[in-house]
Computed example of a mutant assay.
Amino acid sequence: MGTQAGTDDTAPHDGDKTAYRAGFACLVGRPNAGKSTLTNALVGQKVAITSSKPQTTRHTIRGISTTPRAQLVLVDTPGLHKPRTLLGQRLNDLVRQTLLEVDVIGFCLPADQRPGPGDAFIANELMELRSLRRPVVAIATKADTVDRDKLAEHLMAIDQLGDWDAIIPCSAVSGEQVDEVRDLLSSYLPLSPQLYPDGVMTDEPDIIMIAELVREAALEGVRDELPHSLAVVVEEMVPRQGRPDDSPMLDVRVNVFVERPSQKAIVIGKGGSRLREVGTNSRKAIEALLGQRVYLDLHVKVAKDWQRDPKQMQRLGF
Rank of each mutant, 00 (worst) to 15 (best):
M1N: 11
G2S: 14
D9W: 11
T10P: 00
H13F: 14
D14G: 13
A19V: 12
R21S: 06
A22D: 00
A22N: 02
A22M: 00
C26E: 07
L27M: 13
V28K: 00
G29N: 09
R30S: 13
P31F: 02
P31Y: 01
N32Y: 09
N32C: 10
N32H: 13
N32E: 06
A33V: 05
G34D: 09
S36H: 04
N40Q: 05
Q45N: 12
K46C: 06
I49G: 05
I49E: 05
S51D: 07
T56I: 08
A70G: 01
L72A: 08
V73T: 13
D76S: 01
L80R: 03
L80H: 02
H81C: 04
L87I: 01
G88T: 00
R90H: 14
L91F: 04
L91E: 04
D93G: 14
L99E: 01
I105D: 03
C108E: 00
L109H: 05
P110D: 02
A111H: 10
A111S: 15
A111C: 15
Q113G: 08
P115Y: 05
P115K: 04
G116W: 03
P117N: 10
A120F: 02
I122N: 03
A123C: 04
A123T: 07
A123F: 05
N124A: 13
E125L: 14
M127R: 13
L132V: 00
R133Q: 14
I139H: 01
A143D: 03
T145G: 00
V146T: 01
V146N: 04
D149R: 13
K150C: 10
A157S: 12
G162L: 07
W164P: 03
D165R: 07
D165M: 07
A166K: 12
P169C: 10
S171F: 09
V178D: 09
V181D: 05
D183R: 15
D183I: 07
S186C: 14
S186W: 11
Y188A: 08
Y188E: 08
L189S: 10
S192P: 08
P193A: 11
Y196W: 15
G199V: 10
I208R: 11
I208Y: 11
I208D: 08
A211Y: 00
A211G: 13
A211W: 01
L213R: 04
V214M: 03
R215Q: 01
G221V: 09
V222Q: 02
E225Y: 05
V234W: 05
M237G: 03
P239M: 02
D245L: 14
M249E: 15
V256P: 01
F257L: 11
V258W: 08
P261E: 14
S262R: 15
Q263E: 13
V267A: 10
V267M: 10
K270P: 00
G271P: 12
R274K: 15
L275A: 08
R276Y: 06
R276C: 07
G279L: 07
S282R: 06
K284L: 15
A285I: 04
I286V: 15
E287Q: 15
G291Y: 07
V294W: 03
Y295N: 14
L296R: 03
H299L: 14
H299M: 13
V300P: 11
V300G: 09
A303S: 15
D305H: 13
R315Q: 15
R315N: 13
L316H: 12
